[in-house]
Amino acid sequence: MALSLYFDRSSWLHRRHPIAKVLVLVLLFFAAFLLADPLPLACLFVLVFAVTASARALPVLHRMRWLMIPVFFFTVIIWTLFYPATAGAPVDRWAALRYGLAMALRLETFLATGFVFLATTTIEEFAFALARLGVPYRAGFVLTLAFRLVPVFFEAALTVRDAQRCRGLDFASGSVATRIARYGPVIVPVFIGGLRRADQMAFALEVRGFSAGRPRTSLPRPGIDAGDLWLLATGVAIAVATLVVP
């Protein structure tokens, strides 16, 4: 089971420097946050969609359609209902719908931007960018390590679930509380398995020089190039543009 959203391809976006990508990610979030009308938000969404396509990462959006489609409708409905009306004044149904649509498009833009970032950036690149942007090394390392361990625990959780099903554990019946409580026999073995591993993992890290206390180095990485600067410039331009859009 593929848990990572990363698409191992070689597109122009895959090759961009992770710092440039993180900064543009933030700029696009910022732009989508500032926009409040459906039309410009739809434009932004189309732009992100086009970028995804050019990075040959459309399959990630397809894979996430189960999420993106219901989110759209749910958001439109809920914000139309919760439209911040002025006290006393009659509710303008049309304005409420426009507002709901804008919120949904904003949310979709957030999601699509995040997905295309994850589809074209490895977790190591992400951690590297975070470190360069001031996040402490060990915090970035925990992010990578945790990311790598997720499939390990995930597999373990599925195996344990099967093992307990073989012993008659039934997840499908009973009250909510009993059903929640049935996760105990699944969680405990996975947890204990992790603990058995924790000490050895700490040892293995020490052996690999984790506490050597020397300035760290890494494999040579390409620096920021013209393409990265173009990407950044475009991101800044979009963010500035949203400030002037009425």
Partner: peptide, 26 residues
């Protein structure tokens, strides 16, 4: 319990990187 990376090369580079070995040498 002794693999920490999501890429084989980066895994091998991890130890020398902790020791501050020069990138070309890594």
């Amino acid at each position: 319990a002794q693999l920490f990376s999501t890429n084989v090369r980066l895994e091998v580079a991890f130890g020398p990187g902790q020791l501050g070995v020069e990138p070309g040498e890594i």
